[in-house]
């Protein structure tokens, strides 16, 4: 499992990426990240929720209190246009970063 500090930097990216697929609540985002990464990435709630609120405050997400499928009150997050722009930027950054790391590792 990757160490947390790798995850921290990428957390915003992961959240934005997940929400780009469709609106979701906090728990749903967490589950999806875990599933899609093949159980490799686990986001703790302690960092997930502050990150969500921070992104919302930055205008990259919007949220709404609504009732979920099983009739419970849940906050549903939706990605905004600004969020999508940020996502494409960060995705590119991350690709380059990953590429650089891979090259470095192959060198050695």
């Amino acid at each position: 499992m990757p160490k947390t500090e790798y995850l921290q930097g990428a957390l915003d990216l992961l959240i934005l990426r997940t929400l780009a697929l469709g609106p979701n609540h906090g728990w749903g985002i967490q589950q999806r990240i875990r599933q899609v990464s093949g159980e490799a990435l686990t986001v703790s709630q302690g960092s997930l929720y502050p990150a969500l609120h921070r992104l919302e405050a930055a205008g990259l997400l919007s949220s709404d209190m609504s009732t979920s499928e099983n009739n419970r009150k849940a906050r549903i997050y939706t990605i905004t246009a600004a969020g999508r722009r940020r996502l494409s930027l960060e995705t590119e950054d991350w690709r380059q970063f990953a590429l650089a790391i891979r090259r470095l590792l192959q060198e050695g």
């Binding site: 609540h25 906090g26 728990w27 929720y49 209190m65 979920s68 419970r72 009150k73 849940a74 906050r75």
Partner: peptide, 14 residues
């Protein structure tokens, strides 16, 4: 308050 709701929801789902 809203966060409490959110947290409760999360706990139930989990």
């Amino acid at each position: 308050r809203e966060f409490d709701d959110e947290a409760a929801f999360h706990l139930e789902m989990e």
